[in-house]
Design a protein around this nucleic acid. Structure first.
Lengths: 261, 261
DNA sequence: CAAACTATCACGTAGCGTGACGGTTA
DNA sequence: GTAACCGTCACGCTACGTGATAGTTT
């Protein structure tokens, strides 16, 4: 008799199976688990890690972001913050990958320059030589691109900005998120109304947090975001784990704040 | 009065200048110096590092190889072993960069697959999902490509093979090289003829070393290589630093070995 | 019962980052 | 003189690698 939450049609994978599929080591999966970055949704009776399809999706995100040189500290918050609109997140990642491809092309041209400097007597120009090795400078890019092509996609701009955040930045980001969520959970469990000033205040803090660290977030957008909190099973789970009814509570608080603010 | 070896027309650069040009940190340059990977060809009176154009060329190689995920342990021997034919080395690097671009493209297609899986109800196929994250498998590639397109370029094949060498491999490679060169220097300074059996034996060991670790190296190719040892100022310098006349000594020993073997 | 998995420690490593401290140069 | 360089230690950190040891599955 299985009382487990095992959906019949859903396949589960062991560590080594996932490792082979995704071309990562078992140790890396252990590491991601320990860091809380990718916790397998199930464990066997003997404690074996069992990964679901959704775990695989998350792993893909992790690998893409890692390929884009985001640190593991950054990847967690980044996935969570953008998960409510996967489409835009994926498009932003795509844009960064294209950029990376352009850098590789630049390096190739640098090698070509070195090659032609070999035969010709051209003295190998020192500017071309190191093209493609630049680290991304968000400030420069923001101004340049936004003016040239009028890039309106908040996500793409945002994900580029986040590439410049330091480890300390991410630490405080995580701390802020924790504090806000803990505060809301506290209010919920002590019976304070989600439309109270205290709850609305935390909702506003949450909006500013998003706005400050990730992308411009108007109160209207914030409401849209909160709708997805309750619509998306992943987010619901996330909040419910902390306190029963928290997802709905947050949504109400955010909506109230937007109406009044 | 400058008694230095300063060629008049040759510009020299300080650490920070190089750092800015090549988009690396000063610390990284210090690190490369310490590791013996990139030792600036001059120092100022006060001990400031001064980099020549040739140092910059070497730095470019380092950065390209680093971009291709070679460890610093590997990069040194790799540059030295291929420096006698920069053209082929550069072409091999170019090939690897193109390969890397293909991997990025594969990852982009993976993201695209995730995007289309979002709108459509296609359940996101698990093979496409992790394309582009494979580590290079030389064995597989050697067989596949060499048979399909008949890739004859020894360098390209070789540089791919070297990507699978472990840290321990590179350690023993370096040790072997050291031992052979030390042996030859010993013979030279003790007055043993470069055409003696002892010298020819070491020459043969050197050939096998190249052949085993880098690329197929016939005695004829080995002779060609030794010619470049004496023609290329870099190599001459390298050998002369160990013992005066060593470059010529090595060439003679190698030639003798090829004629007799 | 052996081979091939799995788990959890726990220490090791690479490629720098990040001060600390003092001399040098414009 | 001071600001912006330069040098050499020397310790810190991230993302795992690499056993060691012991239970589990086939």
């Amino acid at each position: 008799m299985k009382t487990e939450t095992a959906t019949p049609g859903a396949p589960l994978f062991t560590v080594s199976q996932v490792a082979k599929m995704a071309h990562v080591t078992v140790r890396a999966l252990h590491h991601y688990d320990q860091r809380g970055l990718l916790i397998p949704s199930e464990r066997s009776a003997a404690g074996y890690r069992l990964y679901s399809d959704r775990d695989l999706e998350r792993l893909q995100q992790i690998l893409v972001l890692r390929q884009l040189d985001f640190g593991l500290d950054a990847i967690g918050p980044l996935i969570d913050a953008t998960a409510f609109d996967r489409r835009q997140a994926l498009e932003a990642q795509r844009a960064l990958l294209v950029e990376q491809r352009r850098q590789t092309n630049a390096i190739i041209r640098g090698v070509d320059a070195a090659l032609s400097a070999l035969t010709g007597d051209s003295p190998m120009d020192r500017t071309k030589m190191f093209d493609g090795f630049e680290d991304f400078d968000a400030a420069k890019y923001d101004a340049e691109v936004e003016e040239k092509w009028g890039e309106t996609d908040a996500y793409k701009v945002s994900m580029r900005r986040t590439k410049n955040y330091t480890k300390d930045d991410w630490a405080s980001i995580k701390a802020e998120e924790e504090a806000i969520q803990a505060g809301l959970a506290e209010l919920l469990t002590t019976g304070v109304s989600p439309e109270s000033d205290a709850a609305m205040d935390l909702a506003e803090q949450h909006r500013q947090h998003i706005d400050r660290w990730y992308y411009p977030c108007s109160p209207e957008m914030h409401v849209g975001l909160s709708d997805m909190y309750t619509a998306d099973a992943r987010f619901e789970e996330h909040f419910e784990k902390r306190a029963v009814g928290l997802a709905a509570y947050v949504q109400t608080a955010i909506t109230a704040n937007a109406l009044q603010g």
